[in-house]
Design a protein around this nucleic acid. Sequence first.
RNA 1: CGGGGCGUAGCGCAGCCUGGUAGCGCAUCCGCUUUGGGAGCGGAAGGUCGCCGGUUCAAAUCCGGCCGCCCCGACCA
Length: 551
Amino acid sequence: MIVRASQLFLPTLRADPADAEVASHKLLVRGGFIRQVSAGVWTYMPLGWRVHQKVVQIIREEMDGIGAQEMLAPVLTPGELWETSGRYDLPVVFKLQDRNGRKFVLPMSHEETFTFHAKEVQSYKQLPQVWYHFGTKERDEPRPRGGLLRVREFIMKDSYSFDRDEAGLDESFRKHAEAYGRIFERCQLEFYEVEAESGEMGGKDSNDFLAPGAGENFLVRCENGDYAADIEAAHGVPSTADFPAVLAAPEEVETPGMRTIDEVSKLLDVDPRATAKAMPVVAEGKVVLALIRGDDRLDEAKIAAVLGQFVRPAHPEEITETFGADGGSIGPVGSPVPVLADEALREGQYVVGANRDDRHLKGAQAGRDFEAEFADLRRVKEGDSCPNCGGNLTIEQAIELGHIFKLGTFYSIPFEANFLDEDGTEKPLVMGSYGIGPGRVIAAIVEQHHDEEGIVWPRSVAPYDVHVVTLPGVEEQAQEASSALDAAGLSVLLDDRDARAGEKFADADLIGLPSRVTVGKKTLEDGAVDVRERATGEERRVPIASLGEAF
RNA sequence: CGGGGCGUAGCGCAGCCUGGUAGCGCAUCCGCUUUGGGAGCGGAAGGUCGCCGGUUCAAAUCCGGCCGCCCCGACCA
């Protein structure tokens, strides 16, 4: 295939768009791949759509490879299906009504619809089934951002597995994980499969596929490659505290006006890591005192996992009412409410609030001076050690490319999606669901494959294989070169525009096809062209006659 | 939803404080010259200054309300 740039809708921009921050957003817009229509709503223009199609085809091949069956479910979905699952009232769900006031949902994923169809599965003999589609998803995101990173409408490949039992689900889950690995490898992505929070899905196990780069997730990794986790699920070993001399009993000290760990540790000349921070929270109407080491941050996802969904920090009035002291001076010793302490505080003696204004206690020790439940509450941070090998942990931003869930019977029970098993009993289907966002895959590829000049597409997803740049006076030779490449099965973008060489080269670098062929006046003398690799800048001279074999 | 910023030609911006016929660069169109890393000269086209209202002889500019977009946070299959 040969496409002429002079006829192509490819509006490249010389400057970065003013509202873009991340590299993939800037480059995809500048390169004429995508344009914004509204916040979090994008059009894929011809080049961008070609990339999307390439990614989709890779996903399709790998899904088909594990026996999944492609179909297409509608966007417009009756509200009753979502009332059945209980998801109708989630705030991110787009809802609308028809002229008769009948409720509809624009779904953000299709569990309900696919489970609805799964009611037609009758017998264990038909299992397992794996169905998927590339469907348009809608989400009333409170805050879209970062180009394709977080959007309100997007295409997702979502698949759903239906098995007889847990063992079958494990197998479907494993196959998906392997297929996902192959998909991301074919897209030349560096990625990590990590444990994830299941959110509102009610599922048990769920794994995220994270690609380092920009993005909204934080990936924790060990330098030795034996540990990777999303920060919300990650465990780190905190650095060792520098404890002062051991005390036989807690000792009260005056700390007038000292409210923060920083102030207290400076005043008392104590390592902040040898202090403990008390954070009263309210869960289900009850106050609990969360206790973490002075240098740590409370991880809200982790405390929510222990105390339940609705945890909030206590209000100042609640604190003084409960503890009889200001928030800067409260502590676990003599606490009127249960203490939930981070694992790091099991051993050692810490400086804590005395539950009296302007007083702290030195040498407070869990088990001796106060009772506490222990849990992992601290947010992993730079400088922590790997829980497996003790190596250094690093934290980097990452894009969530895909998410795989073991749903179990969360949907099949309310939908009564049952089958008759070998033993003659009726059982609910055991389900899994598995998503990949091609748009995020594209963003991640650009994040990981670009330089100062523009995008550097991996060949597997490049919109075209070769960019042929024609300089003036050699139009015929450029056509000849393009035909040779086309005959060799390569797709060609022929830049036949009446533009200056520099402009064409700059656009070629920006658009980022893997190879560039320059046809210029020299070609008239030697019948050869310059072939340049976008990734390396390496250039070689190749006769047009043998261009086909040069790739 | 809380905090901050922005809205003027296709893109990037100035003008607003201190009201008086709307400007710059790039892009676009025509002509000539030029042509291996974003050319030069000459000519031209293109804007309800986000929207509504108010103040004023006069509003891009001052005041009020609304809308949209970006960033941080909250939120988040």
